[in-house]
Amino acid sequence: MKSYFRPTGFVDAPFGYDGRVARLAGGLTWFSAVEVIERSGGKRVSQRLVPISEIDTSNPLWARLTAPRAPIQLGERTVRFSEPSVMAILNRTPDSFSDGGRHATDDEAAAAAVAMAAEGAAIIDVGGESTRPGAAEVWEQDEIVRVAPVIERLAKAGVAVSIDTRKSAVMADALSRGAGMVNDVSGLTHDDRALETIANAGCPVVIMHTRGGPETMQRDPQYEDALLDVYDWLEMRIDAAVAAGIARDKILVDPGIGFGKTVRHNLEVLNGLSLFHGLGVPVLLGASRKRIVGALSNEAPVDRRLGGSLALVMTAIGQGVQMVRVHDVFESAQAIRVWRGLRDAALSPPTL
């Protein structure tokens, strides 16, 4: 039997609720109950809502839910997880599903990245290989040629840079040029040398869930329980990373919306996002402009998915997600600032 804790019953502020609410992962979200889920043989056997006042706080899951997340360092930049932040997507690819070919030259890509940083992005995530469903793999040297000049420029300008890649050679090259973090959509499973590369570099890493590679991941994906299966897989990959010498406080997780999941699977994961805080590491969500938005809005094309993308941003930060990976930086950062203003007001109640 395995137990899972999913925080729920969120409240705006803790005032007047001593002993009845808890702070989620050291952030600006408080919760009043936990959905305790028990699973055996791959199936849920029970689930119940437990008020905070009745929770067994000696359970290790409780400590993981409530412990503040340590900040990460990317070059000169410190990224903190006490409030939500934005990771901006910069694709140097001709075939990415949303912005393929948009940043064709090094100058265009660097200018776009600097603009996104000015608009509020804490990290620029630079990628040279499309991982959309059906995409073919790119030779690692071609990938390096696409991303290397931009990474160098951004690092010299003091911008925090992440390299979005599955390949250890690309990781190592990008880190040597000033990237400060690796974002691996394969969860460090695509390349046998990836774990060692990250461990030797001592850099932060995003471990994302997927099922299969881009060529095959959307061919009838199956789960016993999508939310719990994704959680278990990420837990396993965190353990593998720590065993390989990667510090736990440098790991982030991404549940991988759209990667080996149907619309129904994606919705189950999104509704249960707060469960992933039980892994004890910061949570990143990348759902910007994805297929799920089109599927829920009369097949809206990619360039008409801003509203749905912002809805997913708000869903994520409302469940304590610490970082969102987006194309629309200005709008997403603005939404987060408004959310922060509402939260600040709730944390400064009028005097009675």
Results as ranks from 00 to 15, higher is better:
1 M>P: 05
16 G>L: 02
22 A>P: 12
24 L>H: 12
24 L>E: 08
26 G>V: 03
29 T>S: 12
32 S>V: 13
34 V>R: 05
38 E>H: 08
44 R>K: 15
47 Q>T: 13
47 Q>E: 15
49 L>H: 02
49 L>E: 01
52 I>F: 15
53 S>M: 03
55 I>F: 13
55 I>A: 10
59 N>R: 04
60 P>L: 12
65 L>E: 07
66 T>W: 12
72 I>Y: 01
73 Q>H: 06
75 G>N: 08
77 R>E: 03
77 R>T: 15
84 P>R: 07
87 M>Y: 06
88 A>K: 01
88 A>T: 03
91 N>K: 11
93 T>G: 11
94 P>L: 14
95 D>Q: 08
99 D>E: 11
99 D>M: 03
101 G>S: 03
104 A>S: 11
107 D>C: 00
108 E>P: 06
111 A>G: 01
112 A>Y: 15
113 A>S: 00
116 M>H: 05
117 A>G: 00
125 D>T: 02
125 D>H: 01
129 E>I: 06
129 E>K: 09
134 G>R: 03
135 A>Q: 09
137 E>C: 01
142 D>Q: 13
143 E>V: 00
143 E>A: 08
144 I>D: 02
144 I>Y: 00
145 V>P: 00
147 V>T: 12
150 V>I: 11
158 G>E: 09
159 V>P: 05
163 I>F: 10
169 A>H: 00
174 A>E: 02
179 A>F: 11
181 M>Q: 06
182 V>I: 13
190 H>N: 04
192 D>L: 04
193 R>D: 15
195 L>W: 02
197 T>C: 09
203 C>R: 14
204 P>M: 02
204 P>S: 04
207 I>G: 01
207 I>S: 03
209 H>Q: 05
209 H>P: 02
213 G>I: 08
214 P>W: 03
216 T>G: 07
217 M>Q: 08
218 Q>N: 06
221 P>T: 07
222 Q>I: 06
229 D>H: 13
231 Y>F: 13
231 Y>V: 02
235 E>V: 00
240 A>M: 07
245 G>W: 13
248 R>G: 07
249 D>P: 03
250 K>T: 12
251 I>T: 04
252 L>A: 05
252 L>V: 06
256 G>F: 06
256 G>Y: 06
262 T>E: 07
263 V>E: 09
267 L>E: 14
268 E>V: 07
269 V>E: 06
282 P>C: 14
291 R>L: 01
295 A>Y: 09
298 N>S: 11
299 E>D: 15
300 A>L: 07
300 A>I: 10
303 D>M: 10
304 R>I: 01
307 G>E: 13
308 G>L: 08
308 G>C: 11
309 S>T: 10
311 A>G: 14
317 I>N: 04
318 G>Y: 01
325 R>P: 04
325 R>L: 13
329 V>R: 10
331 E>P: 03
332 S>L: 12
332 S>H: 09
335 A>I: 13
335 A>L: 14
337 R>Y: 00
337 R>D: 14
339 W>K: 06
340 R>E: 15
342 L>E: 11
343 R>I: 07
346 A>G: 15
347 L>K: 02
349 P>V: 02
350 P>W: 06
